[in-house]
Write a protein that binds this DNA or RNA. Structure first.
Lengths: 125, 125
DNA sequence: CAGTATCCTGGGGGATACTG
DNA sequence: CAGTATCCCCCAGGATACTG
């Protein structure tokens, strides 16, 4: 037999479909954008909420999220022109499990920091 | 006023505590390791499940997860020596919201791929 | 088996300047 | 306001070889 039962195939092989997707929508900046976009928000307002991001990187992140169907881009007929970003239904459904992960991290950040200190102390010996 | 109510502080400022943590435990390979480690597993078995990972990167990933309290490392008294990795209670509690995110991605990967194609077609115009 | 040790490369992302 | 356009740097992670 080529693939006997007692020798299971890799579960997370190179072409696992989740990998390229999560690379695109769950990276550092995308996470923050998705969390901020609870309601429609303009470019510079997002930028302000994500203190530390550059225009270039924010633009890239927004394009990527738009391409993956997570957010919508809408041009406002103001002067000067404005652009508003908002979650799509798909993005909203993604946001649920996503925010749960975020909140878990927030709740457990102290505990994790403690574990890191313990580990480093042990390593230092 | 330094911080008036109509000009809220950034919610995801540079030192947001979740950022360095998620960088360490929710990156590409960590995600896969956490998903594989439903039960205690030995080094090379993990490596087989994650086809594509190099020894070096897997070792780094395991060390990082251990340092952050997600997994435990246990040496087996076999010949030659074996090492078994397993989730800690903290890691197990992380795994829950985490796997939900993974499953969402699996369920929606086709839809997302479609959105990407649509976007690219529009862009090509 | 479960790791180190080296070397190397791509691209994510920061800094900065310019524009419709 | 909401972006491009350049330049540059760092390091995650791949390839490969060696080992207690």
């Amino acid at each position: 037999m080529a693939t006997p039962l007692d020798r299971p195939q890799p579960r997370f092989y190179v072409n696992c479909p989740t990998r390229p997707i999560l690379d695109q929508i769950a990276d550092k900046w995308s996470m923050m954008v998705m969390t901020v976009l609870e309601e429609p928000t303009r470019f510079n307002e997002i930028k302000r909420q994500l203190e530390g991001v550059t225009q270039r990187v924010l633009t890239q992140t927004l394009r990527r999220l738009e391409r993956n169907g997570m957010i919508q881009r809408r041009i406002l007929e103001t002067t000067p022109v404005g652009v508003e970003y908002s979650l799509t239904p798909l993005g909203r459904s993604f946001r649920e499990p996503f925010v749960r992960l975020y909140e878990w991290t927030l709740e457990n950040s102290d505990e994790i920091t403690r574990m890191q200190a313990d580990y480093d102390a042990r390593s230092a010996g």
